[in-house]
Design a binder for these strands. Structure first.
Length: 888
RNA sequence: GGGCGGAUAGUUCAGCGGUAGAACACCUGCUUUACACGCAGGGGGUCGUAGGUUCGAACCCUGCUUCGCCCACCA
């Protein structure tokens, strides 16, 4: 005989406040999140998508983390050795911008401080905000191995970044060159194609005349950027353009200047766009740049890195782009060179971080040659080495990877991994090395300077799955936990991050970075709007945790999670799940009030139908929830648990167990019922634990199981001795009868607490229904608050006087009401009921009348229709008999 | 220009081939000793639209309407 130390003094209402903090500290103390290399166990690993150190955790993170935590906790319970590796991202531009903004408040610019001082300031910022984010993760309940926390700019990762850079460079997969890049004049740095966000905007097409040399007339060119005309070096037309064929090879004069430029042909020109003639400005437009290279044209830069016109722009020097444009157009007009303007909508690129209009800018930059890397990445998914969930994202991935362009990785910033390249002032040679060189590797001059640019922040993120585990050193962690099992992230960073991790993982580990990648939807507000600080519709997870508790927030996010649809979150939703915590708490409180210290065995022979029902359902939950979680469907799992606890356990089982627990059914029944209750909670709490870790741990202890943390228990295996075939269907008959009788009570306006004297259930005595109901009469009396429920055959002569009647299945349920029956109302109710059933019979009959249906539909479907007809017909007969007796 | 996703009760969403479900909101009645963070009951939907496949369609296929997202070098 075992006994447990139960805590029967639970507060009446659940309060998460102290409980969550308490358990989190205990878990940490006990080292329960620590990932250990255990050759005996299978590994399960996740590296966290490192949040930016720029701010605080938002509800999107909370969702992301809840999902990962549910996976990790479940896998631990399933016996895996689990690593959930946490960390944060230095977030290059984003962080530099916030710190700069912060400094600007004090009137300081980064140039005032100088590079070294400024970077020091950012590190100070990182210290404060980075640790704040970590604290927030802990409040959520994240079961990360904090001993292994990493930062994308820490020493180990810097080593990895350098190693990767050098190896890619030596392999020819990183190159440096002067190209047109996307340039943010405000951030004063190059950005990658992905960091440009396009939006449709109103703009103007200026139709400009380029006077022909040696000929009368002019060529008309449509441009949106007249201020770049001083940078023009040619006009281009399509080689097969009828309109311009004979102008190829002629020369024109650049408007408002003396420069003469040629008319060339190039098939990149779209003859149907604008006037069909394109002005070529290689320094300020990507296409023009390519055409310029092809035709060996000069690159004349007229706008500088700050978006200001330079000396090549002549009189416009010093003007901002917009001002220069206005002035230039005015001058064109005065010179009679502007034919017309036309309003158009075109898409304009903006800097992802600051919204400034992006300029195509010619500059010296570093690039990753992505094609060869991408090919392997595509192959890995095609081979099934990486699985996308939901699968649809595979297409998006392929589409991008198959059309990938080289990745501009250099940033003219101060915060980030400085590019490990040293440029020799004497011979110009570039030395790329993992360790700081002291001399030029080519001419051995000591006169070398390190490249001042830093790397795109995503460059270091791309290495995250292996750099965090000690690469390039040969660490046992790498062997054991790499490839990681799962990557959980949003679709917004599939290209930025997921694709690049795949490429880098394959290149440097020769294996995929993760087996499965789960892409979840975005969290929006209750109206479907994207949450943003400016809109003021942000739901702060920390505020929600303070208000409702972390468990409630987690359960909400889990239950709302659906594949392929945005998630709309509101605080009333969280409230619903907050109520669920209380429900679970009180159900447990009830159980504890009725459990002895002694743990009672379940005597199978003592079980009633509802005991068998709840035992069976409990075992079903153990296997179903596990299956759902293993297939990443945590939404269904959470909702199923919610319904099970609230519906099956609380609404039905706890109510039905009351008489036995009170001792009304004898001591043996009391003990067995206690045993069932114990089994239900001992199994269900662990199933709930991954979703709501805190409250389940607290209850686990209250039940007296606290010698071992619930976190450390194994996932419950369904026990076959507690699975009773067909019990759910049997239970349904009881439930339907109860519902029908309760409905009659409500019809009769009987107050819920009032006990009625008598109710009658009439059913043929040799039926299954009769058998089930006979065994459950006490339960029905109890659940419906009727002192005496009488079961009698349908043939028995009716002797109980005026009554309300209804039917369910093959039973008729009657509630005698003495002389107070409202006959009129009862008649119309019965008629209504007859009508509904008749409609159902008719639709079933109509189907059965079709030969095709009977011939082609599966036998069981046909049989179901037949029984619906026969049962319905019988029900109508009974209802009609009741009607008749009323009409008399 | 390509691609993807959504359109189901007042609202937010499940369901994805066999007679429409949940939560919230709403209505009726309740201090039923686990829980008013609750209990019991109820009203409310021709499942965007037009066709097709099928014995049978909210569910599969095709067009259309509509909302949203992503990609692409419209000068």
């Amino acid at each position: 005989m075992t006994t447990k130390k139960r805590n029967r003094n639970l507060e009446k209402n659940y309060s998460p406040d102290n409980i969550e903090q308490k358990w989190y500290s205990k878990w940490i103390e006990a080292g329960l999140f620590n990932a250990e290399i255990n050759p005996e166990a299978k590994a399960f690993s996740i590296v966290i998508p490192p949040p930016n150190v720029t701010g605080s955790l938002h509800v999107g993170h909370a969702f992301d983390h809840t999902f990962q935590d549910i996976m990790c906790r479940t896998k631990r319970m399933e016996g895996y050795s689990v690593l959930w590796l946490p960390g944060t991202d230095h977030a290059g531009i984003a962080t530099q911008n916030v710190v700069e903004k912060d400094l600007a408040k004090k009137g300081i610019s980064r140039y005032d401080l100088g590079r070294e001082e400024f970077v020091k300031k950012v590190w100070e910022w990182k210290k404060i905000y980075g640790s704040r984010i970590i604290e927030q993760m802990k409040r959520l309940g994240n079961s990360c191995d904090w001993r292994r926390e990493r930062f994308t700019l820490d020493e180990g990762l810097s080593k990895a970044v350098r190693a990767v850079f050098v190896r890619l460079y030596k392999k020819g997969l990183i190159y440096r060159g002067k190209y047109i890049v996307n340039w943010c004049p405000r951030c004063s740095t190059a950005i990658s194609d992905l960091e440009v966000e396009y939006s449709e905007e109103q703009g103007k097409f200026y139709y400009v005349r380029y006077p022909l040399i040696d000929d009368d007339g002019y060529i008309l060119v449509a441009t949106t950027r007249p201020e770049t005309i001083p940078g023009d070096v040619a006009l281009a037309v399509h080689p097969r353009s009828e309109k311009y064929k004979n102008l190829i090879g002629k020369n024109v004069r650049v408007p408002l200047s003396d420069r003469i430029i040629p008319v060339i042909e190039d098939n990149m020109v779209d003859p149907d766009l604008g006037t069909g003639c394109l002005k070529i400005t290689p320094a300020h437009a990507p296409d023009d740049f390519l055409i310029g290279l092809k035709h060996n044209l000069e690159q004349i830069q007229v706008i500088d890195s700050q978006g200001i016109m330079n000396e090549k722009a002549g009189k416009y020097k010093g003007m901002k782009i917009e001002d220069a444009r206005r002035e230039f157009v005015k001058d064109l007009e005065e010179a009679g060179l502007l034919e017309k303007t036309e309003t158009i909508t075109h898409s304009v690129g903006h800097c992802q971080r600051c919204g400034t209009t992006v300029e195509p800018y010619l500059s010296e930059q570093w690039f990753v040659k992505t094609k060869p890397l991408a090919e392997r990445g595509v192959q890995a998914v095609k081979d099934g080495r990486i699985k996308w969930v939901p699968e649809q994202w595979e297409k998006t991935y392929f589409n991008w990877m198959e059309n990938i362009r080289d990745w501009c990785i250099s940033r003219q910033l101060w915060w980030g991994h400085r590019i490990p390249a040293w440029i020799c002032k004497d011979c110009g040679h570039i030395t790329v090395a993992e360790n700081d060189p002291t001399e030029c590797e080519h001419c051995h001059s000591k006169n070398i300077n390190q490249e001042s640019d830093v790397l795109d922040t995503w460059f270091s993120s791309a290495l995250w799955p292996f750099s965090t585990m000690g690469w390039p050193d040969d660490k046992p962690e790498l062997k054991y936990f790499y490839p990681t099992s799962l990557m959980v992230t949003g679709f917004d960073i599939i290209f930025f991050w997921v694709a690049r991790m795949i490429m880098m993982g394959l290149e440097f580990m020769d294996d995929v970075p993760f087996r499965d990648v789960y892409i979840h939807s975005l969290i929006r507000d209750e109206h479907g709007k994207k949450m943003s600080k400016t809109k003021g519709n942000v739901i702060d997870p920390l505020v929600m945790i303070d208000k409702y508790g972390a468990d409630a927030l987690r359960m909400t996010l889990a239950a709302l999670s659906v594949q392929g649809r945005d998630i709309l979150l509101s605080s009333t939703r969280i409230e619903t799940y907050r109520f669920f915590m209380n429900k679970l708490w009180n159900a447990s409180r009830f159980a504890l009030m009725n459990l002895d210290d002694e743990v009672h065995e379940i005597d199978i022979n003592q079980l009633h139908m509802h005991d068998k029902f709840i035992l069976t359902r409990t075992q079903e939950m153990a296997s179903k929830v596990r299956e759902l979680i293993d297939s990443y469907d945590i939404g269904t799992a959470a909702r199923m648990l919610y319904d099970f606890v609230w519906g099956d356990v609380c609404d039905w089982y706890l109510e039905m167990s009351k008489p036995a627990l009170k001792g009304d059914e004898g001591e043996e029944r009391r003990k067995t019922t206690a045993g069932v209750l114990e089994e239900v909670f001992k199994t269900t709490l662990p199933l709930l634990h991954p979703f709501i870790p805190f409250v389940t741990e607290e209850l686990w202890e209250a039940f007296g199981y606290g010698d071992e943390f619930i976190m450390k228990t194994s996932w419950p295996n369904p026990k076959s001795e507690y699975i009773f075939e067909g019990i759910n269907e049997k239970m349904r008959i009881l439930q339907d009868s109860v519902r029908t009788l309760r409905n009659l009570r409500a019809e009769a306006h009987v107050a819920p607490q009032q006990w009625l004297n008598k109710a009658v259930i009439r059913v043929n005595s040799d039926t299954e229904t009769a058998k089930i109901l006979t065994a459950s009469l006490n339960q029905i009396e109890n659940l419906c608050r009727v002192h005496d429920v009488i079961l009698e055959s349908l043939e028995t002569v009716w002797t109980y006087g005026a009554s309300l009647s209804s039917v369910t299945g093959d039973a008729e349920i009657k509630l005698p009401v003495g002389g107070v029956l409202d006959v009129e109302k009862e008649i119309s109710r019965l008629k209504q009921e007859i009508e509904t059933i008749t409609k159902n019979i008719n639709s079933s009959q109509a189907r059965l009348n079709k030969a095709d249906f009977v011939a082609r539909a599966p036998a069981e479907v046909v049989e179901k229709e037949r029984s619906k007809v026969s049962e319905g017909t019988a029900q109508i007969e009974r209802l009609k008999a009741n009607l008749e007796s009323l009409s008399k």
